[in-house]
Design a protein around this nucleic acid. Structure first.
Lengths: 216, 216
DNA sequence: CCCACAGTCAACCGTTTGGTTGATACGGCG
DNA sequence: CGCCGTATCAACCAAACGGTTGACTGTGGG
């Protein structure tokens, strides 16, 4: 069988070195290029295609410190002609990450703390055009399908964002030019949809689900 | 010059492989042992000392999925006779992490996304008994010294962390085996030190100041 | 030895928030 | 057209939270 040609995309040199060592230790895997973020990855793919040396699989991290993030990059790659399979390999398994990656066209989703041979198996499957999901991720996706999460309205997200800055109901009502009563109504709906019963828990869940993002 | 003998402590096989590859690529570095978490690391150190093959430096991650966390392990190691230098190598640079690690006796604090030669230099410095801080980390510590923020006690930080998960005062009191009255006292002190007057604002400020880290 | 501080707890009181019910208005969709 | 979801507001009550005062303990530094 021929070699599997791989592009690594991760902003951490340590992780790239680890994946390279882990994969090239075994027959049949070649890391032909690396990129620290999405835009550079796309350039690499185009460069390799121009050379007539196409890729068999892209190993993509989602969290990039700077530059194009993994989901955007995946979407861009899958929009290219003769796009290679993209296997997501990331640290976290939050709902938003997984869904966004799958929507963007990823062929699989692995967690970085997976045992090496599981990662290698996933790469092989992705290169063969198959789908590869880590067990934890698969379970989470199934759970999501079985009981779908309610969608917050734009106004509710807006409230949530103000909430996360620590504002009181009265402060939010002034900011949004609505009455406190309306603020409370919105909050009750938010708690309902997120399955919580107070504002701090709402912020915690919304942050986890990446509905809002906190100051960095 | 003689070789620098290293123990790697990280729960991710990928990261361990990356560090091993990155360090052993260069003359003078030998990875003599690895451990996925703190307790195993301590056992390794004892084993090597019993063999008369002491370590020159321990490379320690702080976030461990399971087992003994990095700060606890560092404290335990620095309590041993003829303890090796411990160099912290982690993903985040929150105040809480840095302070706790330094208090626990770490000789340095590097971020995983640092360039390879910076990491190697830090390992060399630590092995030589010197201190090594990543520029970002050093800047943060200096900023902390220049305009000192009121320091939260460990207990207060602990409360803050529970707070950020959305727990009520009653829930926190049960979790920490203290009364609600005590929880309220702590919270008042926290609000005071952070200059806020409610729990959501406290979480917002604490997140901004990187006193706590939210789910990610 | 004494002081300061962290941590613990209690009682009190006013304010804020959570939860409910009900009402109005507007837009889109079958 | 009627229904549903979104957004708006009001009134009400119970529960949680915020703020204060005061008190006790243990630990560590001057």
């Amino acid at each position: 069988m021929s070699e599997i040609r791989i592009l690594l995309v991760d902003d951490h040199p340590v992780v790239r070195a680890g994946l390279r060592a882990m994969l090239t230790d075994f027959e049949g895997f070649t890391v032909v290029a690396e990129a620290p973020e999405g835009a550079a990855a796309i350039k690499e793919i185009q460069r390799l295609q121009a050379l007539g040396e196409p890729l068999d699989v892209v190993l993509m991290d989602l969290q990039m410190g700077a530059g194009m993030d993994g989901v955007t990059a995946t979407r861009a790659i899958k929009g290219m002609p003769s796009a290679p399979p993209v296997l997501i390999l990331t640290t976290y398994d939050t709902d938003a990450d997984i869904l966004a990656a799958v929507e963007a066209g990823a062929s699989g989703y692995m967690l970085k703390d997976a045992p090496p041979e599981q990662i290698r198996a996933a790469v092989q499957q992705a290169a063969a055009g198959q789908t590869a999901l880590a067990p934890e991720v698969a379970a989470r996706l199934l759970g999501r399908i079985r009981n779908p999460q309610p969608v917050l309205s734009p106004r509710e997200v807006q409230l949530l964002e103000l909430l996360a800055t620590g504002m009181s109901n009265k402060a939010m009502s002034k900011q949004l030019f609505i009455s406190e009563a309306t603020v409370k109504t919105h909050l009750v709906h938010i708690y309902d949809k997120l399955g919580v019963d107070n504002r701090t828990a709402a912020i915690a869940i919304a942050t986890q689900r990446r509905i809002i993002r906190t100051a960095g």
